[in-house]
Design a protein around this nucleic acid. Structure first.
Lengths: 335, 335
DNA sequence: CTGAAAGCGCTTACAG
DNA sequence: CTGAAAGCGCTTACAG
């Protein structure tokens, strides 16, 4: 691989001159610059970004830490993050944590060592050691779908899960339902907690007390929703509607109901959260709450870019609005 | 940020000694090594991977070029690629090309400049210039779901699309169907071509001539399948079965059939290709051909790793077998 | 086992 | 406008 030195020798100029041509430095004659550029082409010179990084202290790489790229949410966000970042000359290093603390820490360590310029993170388990690394990072950090810990003044970008849950609940309530079940994601899930908070608050706001037998916490998959629906029908048979904390759970519920010949929405209204592609399928048409996934990725990247150009370690957080998507799985309660 | 020099000064030893401690070099007394390691902790020293890369000519970075991370196939592969690579100390830089040549080239250039150690690529449009860069790369390259150009002796990892299509067709044929329609993906799609080849060959093998009015090329989405089904029913009404080149198309077909009250599989058998999660949904139960997606990513990473450790620029390609998944959308033709 | 020195491929004051 | 020199943070022969 030819280096800047080879180019210089080839032309009988100094490396400084070659470097100046490479970097569009003003202090160089147009003619020499052209000659250098041509010589580079001729001998197939490619600048070594590693050497440049060492000196400039800029690696032009951004780290992206997500739980699971296989989750349509994160892949949608990863898509837009990459798009806006690469359009701005950055490359993105991505890591699936698989929701494992060990992997989160490995990522953060790598961020330090590799001198990444900034990161976008969706951590699940940051412990004290991980936080300590984050504090020492000295680069822009934006939290995606997670809140930064109290003592870290870092921005986040997320959807307003609480408000979204309230939209869903208010809709159900407006339809006359009062015995509404809830299917939650695993208890440690931040988004799950927020949606649950919306469920409880909306009920209370109307003077209704959430019935513990109408609440089930399981996983986040279709199979979980299926199981949960069975359990709810057993424990809370008077229920007329169910709020599933995500679409997958809602679809599992729909499946259980279809198999048990309980008509939707006549016998049971079902509302989800996420607006997955599948939810719009002809056979499903799940009423749900949509989140602007791609926009979330885009915004996260933009906030990071802004911090990078303004050379700041903090910025305004963004809470994006959700949108109720009314399809065919909810109806007013039969009087 | 403290450097190796700070550690050395702090301890009154030379930087060589510090470096040796850092790299588990044998030529160092255990005691000094411990002291150095402790000092590093004390002053929060983190090695600078950029500087190390410059000298070692290893960036420990692998590039991953895919068309669209949002496609469940690529996200599944990206997941496993990251998993095996990161377990081996590599970080992965990923790029969505969005099937644009310009982005493919930008990626390749970046690979050169950033001195990546190897790449896994799924290109759609490599032109001469792009190929020229690949030839000069001098690092291991593995093609994922694509074939390398003739003159590049590089390995690929893929599923045997042709064989998969034959499985699907043979199944339909064994069920007694002879008027079988075909829904293809965009004509430039390599995988689409291979599946089409299987469709044609299997028909011919049985002495059947593919009927041009039974073949439609559109896009790769549900909406395309919906449209395609309408067109097929118009142009080739005697058709009793349809082979959709991917599940999304198959699902679109199913949707059209459901809306037009044509029963599946009695009136029309439908078979897909891909085995997406949705295809197993209670309402869909699409018979299809499964591809081992995650395994594909894993294998691609393993082949790359092998080339890296053996220091070779080529390796054995891998063609993974598909599997026919029989569900509920195909039946034998009514005599 | 330890240290001084050269060098990886660049950039950037500093002189001229 | 151009070049010589120092230096980014490391590693690695080479001496001792």
């Amino acid at each position: 691989m030819p280096t800047i030195k080879d180019v210089a020798k080839h032309l009988g100029v100094s490396v400084s001159t070659v470097s100046r041509a490479l970097n569009n430095h003003p202090d160089i004659k147009q003619d020499t610059k052209n000659e250098v550029l041509e010589a580079m082409k001729r001998i197939n010179y490619t600048p070594n970004a590693v050497a440049r990084s060492l000196i400039s202290r800029k690696s032009n790489t951004i780290g992206l830490m997500i739980p699971d790229i296989t989750d349509p949410f994160f892949s949608a966000m990863a898509h837009d993050v990459e798009e806006v970042l690469s359009d701005n000359g950055y490359q993105v290093v991505y890591v699936n944590t698989s929701r494992r603390l060990e992997k989160e820490k490995r990522f953060l360590t790598s961020v330090m060592e590799r001198k990444m310029d900034g990161i976008i993170v969706t951590p699940d388990f940051l412990d004290e050691e991980a936080l300590e690394i984050m504090r020492r990072l000295e680069i822009p950090v934006v939290f995606l779908r997670r809140r930064p810990p109290q003592d870290l003044d870092m921005p986040f970008v997320d959807v307003d899960h609480y408000e979204g849950a309230c939209n869903a609940m208010d809709y159900l309530l407006s339809l006359g339902h009062s015995r509404i079940g809830f299917m939650g994601m695993p208890p440690y899930s931040f988004t799950g907690q927020e949606r649950y908070r919306g469920y409880v608050d909306c009920l209370k706001k109307r003077g209704l007390e959430p019935d513990p037998s109408g609440i089930v916490w399981d996983g986040r998959t279709i199979a979980c929703g299926y199981r949960a629906m069975g359990k709810l029908m057993e424990d809370y048979p008077s229920m007329t509607a169910v709020f599933a904390a995500n679409d997958l759970l809602g679809i599992g519920a729909l499946e259980w109901l279809a198999e048990h010949k309980l008509s939707v929405p006549e016998r049971m209204s079902v509302i989800g959260f996420d607006n997955l592609e599948v939810s719009d399928l002809h056979w499903i048409k799940l009423t749900t709450v949509a989140q602007p996934r791609k926009e979330m990725g885009r915004k996260a990247a933009e906030v990071l870019l802004q911090m990078l150009t303004e050379n700041k370690l903090t910025a305004q957080s963004i809470l994006l609005p959700t949108k109720l998507i009314i399809r065919e799985t909810c109806t007013s309660v039969i009087k």
